[in-house]
Computed example of a mutant assay.
Amino acid sequence: MSDPTARILRLLSLLQTYRHWGGSELAERLDVSPRTLRRDVERLRELGYPVDTTRGTQGGYRLAAGAKLPPLLLDDEEAVAIAVGLRTAAGGVAGIEEASLRALAKLQQVLPPRLRARLNAVQDATVPTVFASRGPAVDADVLVAIAQACRGSEQLRFAYTGHDGTETSRLVEPYRLVSRGRRWYLVAWCLQRADWRTFRVDRVQRPFANGVRFPPRELPAEDAAAYVAQALRAVPNRPRAVVRIAAPVEQARAAVWPGMGELVPDGPDNCVLHATGDSVDWLAVGISMVAATSGLRLTVDGPAEVLEALRRLGDNAAALADGRAAAPV
């Protein structure tokens, strides 16, 4: 790539993925010599981009966090994706809604007309739905620190508060973050336990990536979301319900959100959902949503507290339909 300006912009675009780039790999991508690459990196530093350099056989470059935010290089799809994401601020993250609106206003000011038209089309066709969260909010800085460690495949150390309130120090190889309803979970290989673990992010404090990189391990599940669902089903005293569905398991699987629980066949034309939830009321809401949107016939075997929650939900829905005030749950 002979044009210096285009080459530096391309270098910046690669570095802004926030992964570690080997020097030879980066030079090959840009079709330049290692000497030219070093010169281009110095030019980025002069422009305010903090590029870290590591030496040795595993040496290379990485864009680090700086004292100020330099200009970002976004292509059309990235700009629209960010704007759409800002319109629906991450649920359960403390203080992010107002910051998202400020960032969206700044981004809209600099979008070219063709991209602004695409964003407006999405906004006009979308009705956001906000659910009040009763759970503890996640600190945005903690969430970002974990995400960066996942992206960079760096070991992460943090303080973790368990169910009994005891704080322990954990050293993990972070794999993925999973947003599940009102809560965020980290899926990671725990070096102290030598096994896979899930961690509630609202219980994580003082996360610190120590710079030690690791090769990815094979997760013993289809994906991180499936692993979290599997781990939560094993938590004792978690609200549960047995739901019988008059449909083959393949048909039910298309209508039931995987995080609700485990679907198992019950003969060729029926299946059973072993459902779990953060609370009895949220479990009742989830079951009701499946019944209302799937067109399938559901029967709930119990337990009694879930059946009672379903009755309250039905009574409140009937009251609202009749113009009466719904009772608090």
Results as ranks from 00 to 15, higher is better:
44 L>S: 07
111 L>F: 06
196 W>E: 05
196 W>M: 06
59 G>K: 11
12 L>E: 05
15 L>R: 09
316 N>E: 06
228 V>E: 01
236 P>I: 06
1 M>R: 13
166 T>L: 03
30 L>Y: 08
314 G>N: 14
144 V>D: 12
174 P>S: 05
230 Q>Y: 07
58 Q>V: 02
264 V>Q: 07
83 A>S: 12
129 T>Y: 12
49 Y>F: 14
287 I>E: 04
175 Y>H: 15
302 G>T: 10
28 E>S: 14
39 R>W: 04
291 A>M: 03
310 L>R: 08
190 C>G: 02
222 E>V: 14
185 Y>S: 06
210 N>V: 14
202 D>F: 00
206 R>F: 10
315 D>P: 01
37 L>M: 06
265 P>Q: 03
307 L>Q: 13
41 V>L: 11
85 G>Y: 05
188 A>W: 06
87 R>P: 00
26 L>E: 06
67 A>F: 02
71 P>K: 10
64 A>R: 15
85 G>L: 05
301 D>L: 12
273 L>H: 04
42 E>P: 00
209 A>D: 05
224 A>V: 13
268 P>D: 14
93 V>Q: 04
28 E>T: 10
130 V>H: 11
177 L>W: 04
258 P>W: 00
28 E>D: 15
47 L>T: 00
70 P>F: 09
77 E>W: 10
84 V>E: 13
113 P>C: 08
232 L>D: 06
163 H>L: 06
86 L>N: 04
194 A>F: 00
322 D>N: 13
267 G>I: 05
118 R>K: 13
152 G>A: 15
20 H>L: 07
6 A>R: 15
206 R>P: 00
94 A>I: 10
22 G>S: 08
95 G>E: 05
285 V>E: 13
132 A>R: 15
186 L>F: 04
14 L>G: 01
171 L>F: 00
324 R>T: 02
240 R>A: 12
131 F>H: 14
156 L>E: 05
288 S>Q: 11
29 R>E: 15
156 L>D: 03
133 S>W: 00
305 E>K: 12
303 P>Y: 08
79 A>C: 04
260 M>R: 09
318 A>L: 14
69 L>R: 15
7 R>V: 03
204 V>G: 03
26 L>V: 07
244 R>D: 07
